[in-house]
């Protein structure tokens, strides 16, 4: 009885909060939990006529398709390498940008920079691919036509030299996303108690020292949480980035073929793609739990759960 009572109390007191959570919760339920039942397809040879339950069981065959390539190691290496690049470089840049924006005390200028930084986030990778092509194109690209001759360097055929692409892709991905992810850090900075800064100033701390000894430590837990969450997606790779931006160019595969592009190019069957998805999710799940456990060991308060 008392439990029900407590629940109704909770609804009455925090009903507004509850309502605010609802849309997000419903979305997660619909798009993340609702489709989990579909995992059975990873173990079946799905035929639409027979339906999900009626299709034949095939055991682990679908997972085999996924590991059958001679490039399995290369692809896994690429996927993880890029994820790590993006997490490390992305976090550093986003935090740095947030700190810099925060230092701009003039609201208007800060807003302008913020908006400009945010804009690329809303561009599709299909469009970005052509923007990149405008720079790197063999015949008419800005790099080969204007920039390289300035330094007396011979034109480079960017789309057939795999070695440049880890840098190009990291650059493009961060250019697109850094403005957006810095927003979260900016919000966290805005939430820091102003009294800390006042106390620091009384003690004679310079702007740089305030940033180093007040702002950064306050951001630590949000940075950790974001890290834990991105570790879970380490096997996920943005198809738009890896497929469109290198223009699906064959010679670049050694450094641009990742799990998602491999699936996209080779997998026509529902079973295969589901198996791949299950594999990525399971690995992501394990990694998230591990990362969280490690964080909890080091700093209990920063852990996510």
């Amino acid at each position: 009885m008392s439990k029900i009572r407590r629940f109704t109390d909770f609804l009455l007191n925090d009903g507004a909060m509850f309502l605010m959570v609802m849309p997000g919760a419903i979305l997660v339920l619909l798009f993340n939990y609702f489709p989990i039942g579909g995992i059975v397809l990873a173990f079946k040879n799905y035929a639409p006529v027979k339906g999900v339950w009626g299709s034949d069981w095939v055991g682990l065959k679908n997972f085999k398709a996924f590991f059958s390539t001679p490039d399995a190691w290369l692809i896994t290496r690429n996927t993880i390498m890029y994820s790590v690049y993006f997490i490390v470089v992305g976090t550093i840049l986003a935090v740095a940008l947030a700190l810099l924006l925060n230092e701009l005390k003039k609201g208007f200028v800060s807003k302008v920079y913020q908006t400009i930084g945010l804009l690329p986030h809303f561009l599709s990778y299909v469009i970005i691919a052509y923007l990149v092509y405008a720079f790197l194109g063999g015949e008419y690209g800005i790099m080969n036509r204007t920039v390289l001759p300035l330094f007396g360097i011979e034109p480079i055929s960017w789309y057939s030299e795999a070695k440049y692409w880890p840098f190009i892709l990291t650059f493009v991905a961060n250019w697109k996303e850094v403005g957006f992810s810095s927003v979260i850090y900016l919000a966290a900075i805005a939430g820091i108690n102003i009294e800390y800064y006042e106390a620091a100033r009384v003690d004679g701390a310079s702007r740089w020292q305030q940033m180093k000894y007040v702002t950064l430590p306050c951001l630590r837990s949000i940075i950790t949480i974001k890290l834990i969450m991105s570790v879970g997606g380490i096997l996920g790779s943005d198809l738009g980035l890896f497929y469109n931006v290198p223009m699906n160019s064959g010679p670049l595969f050694p450094t641009t073929n990742v799990l998602s592009t491999y699936m996209f190019r080779g997998m026509s069957k529902v079973g295969f793609t589901t198996a791949a998805g299950v594999y990525c999710s399971v690995v992501g799940f394990i990694l998230t739990i591990l990362a969280n456990a490690v964080v909890r060991k080091i700093d209990y308060d920063s852990a996510l759960f």
Binding site: I4, L30, F34, G37, G38, V52, G54
Partner: peptide
Amino acid sequence: IKLKKLLSLGIAAAMLLGAAACTGGK
């Protein structure tokens, strides 16, 4: 605890429903 149970039940139900909804076999 009640709330958690309720939630997990709801999630389980959603998963089952999700799988059932995909069965279009005819």
